[in-house]
Simulated assay, not measured.
Amino acid sequence: MNQPIGVFDSGYGGLTVLREIVRKLPQYDYVYLGDNARTPYGTRSFDTVYQYTLECVQHLFDQGCRLVVLACNTASAKALRNIQQLDLPIVAPDRRVLGVIRPTTEVIGTYSKTGHVGVLATRGTVTSESYVVEIEKFFPELQVFQEACPMWVPLVENGEYASAGADYFVKQHIDRLRAQSPRIDTLLLACTHYPLLYDKIRQAAPAEVTIVSQGTIVAESLANYLQRHPEIEAQCSKHGRRTFLTTDSTDDFDRQATVFYGEAVQSQHLAL
């Protein structure tokens, strides 16, 4: 029976997470679902993000997925808790849904020497306060400063991430964040699109500041989760297959996905 691991994102950004997961755990089958027709999620209400995410998770369950990773910070911030606590016990008690926020917050404190950490994210993630709340649980001594970067996702999705125009918006938000505390020595890229802006962020930030992307952290966390839950791991099929679904144009998805995933993909359309 085909029981792949599902990976969900509102668009393309989750492909940067899937890339690292596949690199770490290549033996498993994966189904990636990008809700490109309704992206971006970052500007939408909690209720809307919850409904959209739940709908997409159900589609991944229909694909045979026993385990789904929300490779989207906004969905993890606005929908994950409700899905885990309210929906799964009723509609799918044998399925599991994980996010990207907890794995990151469990380790972020190990990167900082000053105890001042900056979070760069969408407005939706910043407003949710999810990172502030979760980091407090694991590293109560840390001071967390947030900066919403509403232009960064559009820059990436419009192919402008390497352009000179991106420099202005990247520097603007790095400067605003560091103005909150010059002692910030760690920057967390709390959006899966942001790794494509890494070179710009590295250039705009002081050399001594550590920049943390989520892909490798989430991949390591997933590996540990499967090790700790052999009953879930045993249900995951292992043929090395990759399936890509999009709710929008497959041509557009395939063209953009190559940039995020790092190799050519051939997607299928999913009608919601």
Rank of each mutant, 00 (worst) to 15 (best):
L120C: 01
E263V: 08
G6D: 07
L70M: 13
D252G: 12
I90Y: 07
Y41M: 02
D251Q: 09
V156D: 02
R66Y: 15
R202A: 15
T48E: 14
Y32A: 03
V57E: 06
N36V: 02
D94C: 01
A148K: 11
P195A: 11
A37L: 12
T48K: 14
Q84C: 08
V91P: 05
G262N: 08
Q27P: 00
T105G: 06
R96T: 15
G262E: 04
R96K: 15
C236I: 12
Q58P: 00
R23Y: 11
G99I: 10
E208S: 11
T210E: 15
K238C: 09
R19Y: 02
F8N: 08
V69I: 15
V57Y: 02
A162Y: 02
G109Y: 05
V97S: 09
N158H: 14
F61I: 11
L188Y: 03
E134L: 07
A164I: 14
D254G: 05
L142Y: 03
F138D: 12
K78F: 05
Q203Y: 07
A71L: 02
E134N: 08
L98V: 14
T250A: 04
Q143N: 14
V100H: 12
E157T: 12
L142G: 15
K137F: 03
Y52V: 02
L155M: 12
Y12F: 13
V265H: 03
F169Y: 04
V107H: 07
G99A: 11
A37N: 06
R95F: 03
S181L: 12
I232P: 00
E220S: 15
A271Y: 08
Q256A: 12
R123N: 10
K24C: 12
Q172M: 00
P93I: 04
I201Q: 06
L155P: 05
A219C: 06
P93D: 01
G215F: 01
A75L: 07
I83G: 05
E160C: 02
D254N: 13
G165L: 00
